[in-house]
Design a protein around this nucleic acid. Structure first.
Lengths: 219, 219, 219, 219
DNA sequence: TATGAATGAGGGTTCATTCAT
DNA sequence: CATGAATGAACCCTCATTCAT
């Protein structure tokens, strides 16, 4: 019984992985169910055995990605020695996350493919929204913590700052994904370096310009 | 001859205006050529007299938008009394620009609908890239100017910082567009206020934390 | 302008004619849009230029058929010398009508493909229902006329009797259509003769068994 | 061996019962094999152990229904005190039969889903046809009996009259099923009353208008 | 025997694009 | 030049049926 569930989960996973690859490569809209079927090496009809619709596949990807991201963020916080280290870790998590899932850019921003249309959002969408809220909380708490330690200038409500910070970071990561070539050729900057610079820049955006402690800042 | 060209330009403009309205309203992908024909009050076939494809319409809109944005940015620089004022003006221009063209989000980032696919980019795409480069130059110069005045911390190459700054700003504006409802209801923050906060935050990200001059900062 | 309309009407007619042929041959459900496209010698996409959906094609056929039937019934009444002759003419009209449109069997019965589902019936469906009501009125008046002349035994409300009579007749015609072979081979009765017998039988079902006037009955 | 057969029969029965429920509820075409599997609590594949195809299920239902109907009709004849009572009983049986199996409407008319297409009808279809013939015989005999008693006007061959009568009745029952709402709301007639009226009307259609004996007619 | 799993073959519908006039 | 008309190519989704276990 558990074996069956495991198998089902395996197939769902294979399909999602294939879809994710294609979404990353060609974008969600331009990826067809036929594409996913071909890439996952199932028949198109089989896709519909494991998912009710393309929408469900999209949402499942968003959801699992979000859950993973949440875990990574929590881990970064838990394992870090201090606030700055945690900040670094979290940024790294986000960067890696979006690097692998460029199509997910915007989930935090628009809430799972603009689903607000339907008054009665289905369970999956509700889950997405819930996890997103949860991540927002996590980040807000993190910022408050930084503020308490006197590191962060919190002249706005933490929730608002989270949104600002997050969207800015997302913008940067998106740029890094989409203009990889430009970065390398024209700017002669490695993608990873570019992103590290971005995280540093955003750190400046929120840190208290406390002259003395500046030295403590990593790198 | 010149008259004919003018007429052609007029028709192209009408079509682009209609398309722009629709793109802003429903998004690019969900806007059909039928929609554009109806809105522009031309026949669908006529659209193909003035544009070779839907793609060309999209690119033309991106291009004209970019040109307009460039002008606005230049104006902001030219009319501002000092660097900070120029910064404010430029941010306002960007915000207004994206507010009216939510679909344009990403042009600066991905270069006209991800056209890198084709090895032989057509003229229009080349134009887009050129203007984009030009805007990048404008901003880089602006940052260098700020650095010379001692206002900006320029620990990266100006071109790279431009990219970082710009993508962050774009991310914020995008967020503001797409989660308007959330901002209002949950965060109780007006869109415009949110964006002003964003611009301020990004200003902190790049300014030199020069204690004495902080007072000179607007607002 | 009128020419254009005429042409449109022509194409719609061609498509409807093709659809009608196929519906009669294979039934509505088993007729695909591809079939209709092939039979009408238009491309499948062209079908959607002239009709919004398969449903609209079905309804258009029902509606035009019903309108035609109504006209034929009215003609039968208008041109008949007396009630019995009118009865004969009307039966003949119905028989011919269903003979050519076996798929229409049941329109009067179930109201255009069971459309009651949608609360907001569209114009076409409303038209169907209106014409159907109108035909019902026509028949009810006809029965009342027969009753006034002392020919018809009207021990029920005319409207109810209409429904009974009509559905019985429809049943008979349907049978005649579907078991053509059986009629000919086993029963050795021609379809037309069978139907004439049916109409006579139903006439007995509603006529007053007035002994004296029986002779006046046709045939 | 016999035990195994009994078991097989049991399973077939369960499946047929489930299918019948669904056919009555949603119609044959809109009932999927998945539906039947769910309702019968077998797996979909098991359905194919007991039936070769959906078609076979449909035919089995038609056949069993027809057999049942035959028995009911025979009972009505056997238990009735006189011809009129038998007529009443038979009508009631038919009405009840179709009321519970709206999907069966037409079996007698079109012979098991229009199977004449295949030159080599399979056993099941042959059975259906046989029972149908048998029922036809039953009814023809019944009519002849009525004629002998001087009640029925038999100016046609009994077999033809059976077909006429039967198809008319079927048409009425079908109407009653499909326009239940209309009957109640517009006509303010109960379904059962409507059907009783229908049976009476059809009785007039075939009875001899013998003035004196009219009083003997039930109700 | 019983079934979970898989699928081929369509179903209706959409849309960017072409072409004769 | 402007357009009405037509369409090929997809798109998402469904379902009766098969097959390995």
């Amino acid at each position: 019984m558990s074996k069956k569930q495991a198998l089902t989960e395996f197939h769902r996973g294979s399909i999602l992985a294939a879809a994710e690859r294609l979404f990353a490569e060609k974008g969600i809209d331009k990826t067809t169910m036929d594409d996913i079927a071909r890439e996952s090496e199932y028949s198109k009809a089989t896709l519909y055995v494991y998912f009710q619709s393309k929408e469900e596949i999209i949402n499942a990807i968003f959801l699992s990605g979000l859950v993973l991201l949440q875990r990574k963020l929590q881990e970064a916080i838990d394992t870090a020695a201090n606030w700055y280290e945690a900040y670094e870790g979290m940024c790294a998590a986000v960067v890696r996350y979006y690097g692998e899932r460029p199509e997910a850019c915007g989930v935090l921003v628009n809430g799972g493919a603009g689903l607000q249309e339907d008054a009665h959002l289905d369970q999956e969408v509700r889950d997405i929204l819930r996890v997103r809220r949860s991540i927002g909380q996590l980040l807000a708490d993190f910022l408050r913590q930084g503020a308490q330690e006197g590191l962060i200038r919190l002249d706005l409500r933490a929730e608002e700052l989270v949104l600002l910070f997050w969207s800015a970071l997302e913008g940067i990561v998106r740029m890094a994904s989409q203009r990889d070539a430009y970065l390398g050729q024209t700017l002669e900057v490695d993608r990873d370096v570019f992103l590290r610079h971005g995280c540093q820049m955003l750190l400046h955006a929120i840190t208290n310009p406390a002259p003395a402690e500046e030295a403590a800042q990593p790198e």
